[in-house]
Amino acid sequence: MANKPRVRYRRLIQLVAAAAGNSYLTGFATGKLYQGDLKMLCTPGLNCYSCPGAVLSCPIGSLQAVIGSRAFSFSMYVFGLIVMFGALMGRAVCGFLCPFGLIQELLHKIPFPFKRNRFRGDKPLRRLKYLILVVFVFLMPMFLNNVAGNASPAFCKYVCPAGTLEAGVPLVYLTPAAPETPAGTPSSGLIVSALAPDLLSRPDTGALFAWKMGLMVAILLLSVINYRPFCKYVCPLGALYAMANPWSLYRLRFDPGKCIACGACARVCGMCVDPTQTANHAECVRCGDCVNICPTAALSLGVGDLKTEGAATGAVTRKEENA
């Protein structure tokens, strides 16, 4: 078909976005962070601001930093930025601009005989990310204050594998150990100890670092088996964009008149979405695999709704149209 819509250059856009967001190369050599004014701005995707190469701030880290500060109890600035990114792109941010999403996708390309995207419990497990958003990003930084009135960024501290991978590992290698920190190699980090003995033998890497390394390794290994497990089940930023996904400007368009109900789109979807049922499902990261595989060009990615589609706003499903 001559005019069949295709999603091209997504991988290139992902690579450019990851490289641009981490383009402070001096940081990788010295272990010192970029300290320019660009860090006032947040990147759309999940990218730790303590990564030595980061030139922008992580929106989830920044949200917790402001909520956990003594001066503020909520961040209108960071939340407003996230709402704007969501209004324009929805979860296309996850599919095109998130460096940690890219890492998971590349890992999923590793051949493995037991790849599994659909399993019992997958659907309820997807709600976990909303719980993590509420508890770790909003409630814990809001209420677990120290005597000075500040709170730790709970999601970054206890969960975020992107922070461990992008900041924890390089910084532990690049910065000298703090000699006054009393800690030893924890017994809980056996797998990590085997994989990266240098990291856990430092005097200042304790149980928390071992927990975070274990979680990171688990998620990276799981990414080989399951497509984007962190995005599906854990990511609070993905949860925020998921809420904006049905309404965003950049969206998946479905033309029911062209659909031959072959089911190829639903089968190819790594996020296990059927775009013919809900074109702009909260879980769709707009990777465009369904667009590329559709034999009749019934699906396309673009700005706004199809004019021929009638009532195909994101919240209106084909089921509802038929009802």
Binding site: Y49, S50, P153, C156, K157, G163, L208
Partner: peptide, 13 residues
Amino acid sequence: KAIRICWECVGIG
């Protein structure tokens, strides 16, 4: 917050 190493994010703080 962003210009200083966040030791909590790293897993050491």
